[in-house]
């Protein structure tokens, strides 16, 4: 069974159906990039995977565990908040606007969840946090507050914070969209390295070069459905569907004439 197995996921906000039956399988170690115009539902789908949004229909399994519900003899029971929190521990998430805790230093941000949620000792958590900061190239900024870091640095700390929980799966919600163009590269470099180390990743992004180079599968969404999915050389290099073609050519022309 794949690590992430989503079947017929639907979600509406106030009678506005944002997801209209999404199917997605992600194998262990795979990197999947979700592409699509804004409003296509890709961010909503990502948030459904770790239950920041509750789904209206369909099922999502992560590592053979049904997300949000217990299935007893075919009847679904909603999980308690505590149980949902436990499921989220296995899934790291990186946000578009970083969402670092501004009242804590970089190091404290990373140490927070392992010590508070997993009850790890301060010492172990700090040691691993320093290693993670070193890995994202920010060991020398460990005592800086988020406000003292650039956007790119904040996002790298946010990645380290998510990794500190030793997740099986990492979700990235447009991780470079809020960054100045010259800071995008440093964040993508960290993500690229993470992919090479075999982390399973689902990435909502507009960075075509990243998707082309790093993704195993590219999923193009539009209007709440998956329009096209496959290896990047097919979906990006030779799109079959007219909506994919239109989106990619629009993106290309914006890139050439910003």
């Amino acid at each position: 069974m794949p690590l992430v197995h989503a079947v017929n996921v639907t979600k509406s906000f106030h009678h506005n159906e944002v997801l209209k039956g999404i199917d997605l399988d992600v194998d262990r170690g795979q990197v999947v990039c979700l592409l699509g115009p804004s409003g296509s539902g890709k961010t909503t789908f990502l948030r459904c995977i770790n239950q920041l949004e509750t789904i209206d229909g369909g099922r999502i399994w992560v590592d053979d565990e049904l997300m949000g519900y217990a299935d007893r003899d075919g009847k679904l029971y909603r999980l308690k908040n505590k149980e949902i929190a436990a499921q989220r521990r296995e899934i790291g998430m990186v946000f578009q606007r970083f969402n670092l805790f501004p009242h804590k230093t970089a190091l404290e941000n990373i140490v927070e969840a392992p010590t508070q949620v997993k009850r790890e000792s301060k010492k172990t958590a700090r040691e691993r946090a320093m290693k993670l900061l070193d890995r994202v190239g920010l060991a020398d900024r460990c005592n800086a507050y988020p406000a003292q870091l650039s956007g790119g640095q904040q996002q790298r700390v946010a990645i380290a914070r998510a990794l500190a929980m030793q997740p099986k799966l990492m979700l990235f919600d447009e991780p470079t969209s809020a960054l100045d163009p010259e800071l995008v590269g440093e964040v993508l470099a960290v993500m690229r390295e993470l992919a090479l180390e075999g982390m399973t990743m689902i990435v909502v992004t507009h960075e075509m070069s990243f998707a082309r180079e790093v993704a195993d599968t590219v999923v193009f969404m539009d209007g709440g459905v998956v329009v096209e999915a496959g290896p990047p050389k097919d979906v990006i290099g030779n799109p079959q569907h007219s909506r994919t073609q239109a989106f990619l050519s629009r993106l290309r022309s914006e890139h050439e004439h910003p």
């Binding site: 908040n81 505590k82 929190a85 899934i91 969402n99 805790f101 969840a113 949620v117 998510a162 929980m165």
Partner: peptide, 15 residues
């Protein structure tokens, strides 16, 4: 986003 980030890390609502 602060509460969301904390929830995504697996914190309980009280935490």
């Amino acid at each position: 986003g602060q509460a969301e980030a904390a929830e995504a890390l697996g914190m309980s609502s009280g935490k």
